[in-house]
Design a protein around this nucleic acid. Structure first.
Lengths: 188, 188
DNA sequence: CGCTTTATGTAGCAGATGCTACATTTTAAT
DNA sequence: ATTAAAATGTAGCATCTGCTACATAAAGCG
């Protein structure tokens, strides 16, 4: 591998670490440079411009998130257990920074400004694929529909968690499980 | 009413209009001043500082949203119809700017920075109350639980809409309605 | 009318931001 | 060793940021 490319990746990784915990909208060249233990001048040497840095950093972060999600590849859960699992995962301090950043990028994507749109959709799709892999539909269930429902509920729970409505999260999940159990009772 | 106060409210209204459609993080004093057809100097005369402007503007906007939501006070919907209603409401171009702004504020609230935290929670609660008012639980339903579930699903749908996954929105709603109908089928 | 308070204009400061020009050192290739 | 190329340092520019000092104009009030 190119020496230049290696160094660029090293910088990218350090900046990604910073951005993940401090957000991207306030990340100026000088702050990024500090985080990477270098100067803004050097960043301009290794990257085309600021937007180039952002693209590479966000891409790196979204790949990290994919790896994180794919950690438990063996995990396979039914609808009910998936909900309970998600409720815990949202609290996971390793995952939260990614959710925060995704929030930010999702907002920045308003107005179709790149690279935010692309990154946002990539993360969205990764997440969806992860659900498809983990959620194991029962034979009588409409898998695609319930997977989409789990996606929606997960996103909703993330929002509720952010606005400090943890009690409603619990209530909503209980409501969902109640309906699910009731539906299953039909052909029990 | 005080003349000073009147003028301040006029400025607040004009800035609110701007912020609603352009976001708040990029709204500098000079841009706000342009939007209000005045100078930054004048803004500092009528407001304490920038944070004072933001607080008043965001408060005004969240009250606007409440009015918007309360437009159809007579509306009362069952679980099923509520879902269908929400699916349409999210597309409503009058409502979208508020959802966008709420997204932004929700992110800005990370780190407990005022006035964002307060505004965010106020809007969240207004929205919840609105659901409580519109959603009419059937006699055999656990109202609070299903209301919370509708809240979560609504928020989730908003996110999906933002990341251009409208097809999954439809699928998720179909899934939810399917489960609901199935659950209801028990006691027909 | 005179006088005090209020409203508005003009300039600018001090810091941050993205980026660049210019110079120098270090490394690599012949 | 010579020389071309790559890496790094130092300064700074132009713009934007929140905010202020200092002035003048206008409006209200006796």
């Amino acid at each position: 591998m190119d020496k230049f490319e290696l160094k660029r990746q090293a910088y990218t990784a350090k900046i990604a670490e910073y951005v993940l915990h401090h957000g991207i909208s306030g990340a100026s060249l000088r702050k990024m440079a500090d985080a990477a233990a270098t100067s803004d001048r050097m960043l301009m040497h290794y990257f085309k411009d600021k937007s180039d840095i952002e693209t590479r950093v966000l891409t790196a972060i979204s790949e990290e998130l994919m790896d994180l999600l794919n950690e438990n590849l063996a995990l396979r859960l039914g609808f009910r257990d998936f909900l309970l699992f998600i409720r815990e995962a949202i609290k996971d301090q390793r995952i939260k920074p990614y959710l925060n950043l995704w929030f930010e990028v999702t907002h920045l994507a308003t107005g179709n400004k790149e690279p935010y749109v692309t990154v946002m959709q990539e993360i969205g799709k990764s997440f969806e694929q992860w659900i498809d892999r983990v959620y194991a539909p029962a034979p009588d269930e409409n898998g695609p529909q319930l997977a989409a429902l789990l996606f929606v509920i997960t996103e909703g729970l993330v929002v509720l968690d952010r606005i400090e409505m943890q009690d409603r999260m619990v209530r909503a999940i209980d409501g969902m499980i109640g309906l699910y159990d009731q539906a299953k009772g039909i052909r029990g």
